[in-house]
Design a protein around this nucleic acid. Structure first.
Lengths: 203, 203
DNA sequence: GTCTATATCGGGATAGAC
DNA sequence: GTCTATCCCGATATAGAC
């Protein structure tokens, strides 16, 4: 654990917290400074403006939000194992960053132009994923299924319990946080079961 | 079409647009006034403050966001028909209000206390839904499945393509809006197929 | 009810001492 | 590099004429 406690790191950590909770428009430079335990002027010393500070955070957050599948897909494990591994890792990431999805989607709505640049930078290539699923369909491992729809289904099922936490916890679980936590851990096996049931070839 | 073009309606319509696009913190009273074609001072004449105006919009939006299932569930149609009807109506609503999900979830993060009041007002009762699904499981119509997980799965699959539109359209569809629209219409049958495949009893 | 003009204040940004 | 004090604009809100 290299706990570099220099000011820049402190600022970035605090800024990430505040921006993720409040969004760009709701975030206050004062609050970021307070949480970082430093002065407001220092923010402008390290990052010239609120926009600059935000960009540093957002780029990072967005890349984390994009499922890191390249690594998973190149292994030679069986398809269903890859699938389960992907669901596990993505849900783990969400547990550690529960605000990430709403933050990213809200901010992208605000200014979709930013996306263009990030797309260029990121080496994200959906084609690998597509062809992999097609291969499985051809091999007869799984039922015929459109790769994009399958991915969107899975990610949607993973994201919603985190994005909708206040609603679900409030309405369905009568605000019992413990019950909701239990529900979240259950989802790993539930999503896997649901997906595999749907696409596995029947005997 | 009773096109009541009195100022209050004009304001509410404009406010809904702006708040849904920008969120509370990003919305500007000036922009709302402009879009309504009236003066900024008039906003404060009808609604005392930005908060008041927002509350009027949010309550409405939130109730729309909650899937209106009560009516569907009381019919005596077969289970799978109810299911398909639910998916169709929910996706139709989202097509007409694409910003709704991100808006609601972002704003609820900002101040979850508001939820409490709305819960009290709304007559939403998840118990009916729960017991209905349980009944189907018992009757052997569908595989054993936890009702809450099933609902969360379905709603997640419906919501994500709308919330993540800029991302999906940008990354997967190379910013071709037409292709993405086609994808969205496909989802009706894809989600139904995916769900039914997963829970239907095998012969 | 609807407007113009203005008060008030919060928050991003800068100056300048140390 | 870090602080205090201050500038200054933009945005909500109000006063008051018509």
């Amino acid at each position: 654990m290299e706990q570099d406690i220099n000011s820049e790191k402190l600022i970035l950590n605090a800024a990430k917290e505040v921006f993720l909770e409040k969004g760009f428009d709701g975030a206050r430079m004062q609050e970021i400074a307070d949480r970082a335990g430093i002065n407001k002027a220092l923010l402008h010393y390290y990052f010239r403006s609120k926009d600059n500070l935000f960009d540093a955070i957002f780029k990072d957050a967005f890349e984390q939000f994009l499922p890191r599948i390249a690594g998973i897909m190149t292994t030679d494990k069986p398809f269903f194992e890859k699938l389960e591994f992907f669901i596990d890792t993505y849900l783990n990431m969400l547990s550690e960053n529960p605000h990430l999805p709403v933050f990213v989607m809200h901010e992208i709505n605000r200014s979709p132009e930013v996306l263009i640049n990030i797309i260029r930078d990121s080496g994200f290539n959906p084609e690998a994923l597509r062809s992999m699923i097609k291969k499985e369909v051809k091999a007869g491992t799984i039922n015929p299924v459109d790769p994009v729809h399958l991915i969107v289904n899975i990610i949607g099922m993973c994201l919603f319990p985190y994005m909708g936490k206040p609603i679900l916890q409030g309405f369905i679980f009568k605000n019992n946080a413990e019950d909701y936590q239990k529900f979240l851990t259950e989802r790993k096996k539930e999503i896997k079961k649901f997906v595999i049931n749907s696409i596995r070839k029947k005997v």
